[in-house]
Simulated scan of single mutants.
Amino acid sequence: MKATKLFNLLTEIDTRLNRLEKSAISYREPLVRTNIKAQPFFALRDEVRRQLPKVDALREADVAGLERLIRGLQDFTIASPPLSKSPQRFDVSGFSNLVNGLRIGLSQLSPVEMLEAVPGQKTASFAFGFRNDMLTVIDQPLLLHPGEEDLARAALENAIEQGVYLNEDVGNSNASPRLKEGFARLQSALESRANIVQIGSRAQICNRLVNAELDELSGGQAGLMLGHIETVFRALAQFPQWRSFCENALSVDLDFPSVVTVAESAKALAIEVAKSGAVDPSVADALETVSEWATDKPNPDKRDVLSLVRTLENVWSAISKPLLSLGKEMVSQARKTVAVAVLGALIYTASQAIPIMGKVPGAEWVQTAYSYFKNMLPPANP
Rank of each mutant, 00 (worst) to 15 (best):
residue 243 R to Y: 00
residue 244 S to Q: 03
residue 245 F to A: 00
residue 245 F to D: 05
residue 246 C to A: 12
residue 246 C to H: 08
residue 247 E to D: 11
residue 247 E to W: 09
residue 247 E to R: 12
residue 247 E to N: 12
residue 249 A to T: 03
residue 249 A to D: 06
residue 249 A to M: 06
residue 250 L to I: 04
residue 250 L to M: 11
residue 250 L to E: 13
residue 252 V to D: 11
residue 253 D to Y: 03
residue 253 D to I: 01
residue 255 D to E: 14
residue 255 D to A: 13
residue 255 D to W: 05
residue 256 F to D: 10
residue 257 P to T: 13
residue 257 P to D: 09
residue 258 S to L: 10
residue 260 V to N: 03
residue 260 V to Y: 02
residue 260 V to L: 11
residue 261 T to L: 06
residue 263 A to S: 09
residue 264 E to A: 06
residue 264 E to G: 11
residue 265 S to W: 10
residue 266 A to E: 11
residue 266 A to N: 14
residue 266 A to Y: 04
residue 266 A to G: 13
residue 267 K to E: 14
residue 267 K to T: 13
residue 268 A to V: 09
residue 268 A to L: 12
residue 269 L to N: 03
residue 270 A to Y: 10
residue 270 A to M: 12
residue 270 A to K: 08
residue 272 E to D: 15
residue 272 E to M: 14
residue 274 A to L: 12
residue 275 K to P: 11
residue 275 K to D: 09
residue 277 G to V: 03
residue 278 A to P: 00
residue 278 A to W: 00
residue 281 P to R: 15
residue 281 P to I: 15
residue 282 S to M: 10
residue 284 A to G: 14
residue 284 A to V: 13
residue 286 A to C: 00
residue 286 A to P: 00
residue 286 A to M: 02
residue 287 L to M: 13
residue 288 E to W: 14
residue 288 E to L: 12
residue 289 T to A: 05
residue 289 T to R: 14
residue 292 E to M: 00
residue 293 W to C: 07
residue 293 W to R: 09
residue 293 W to T: 05
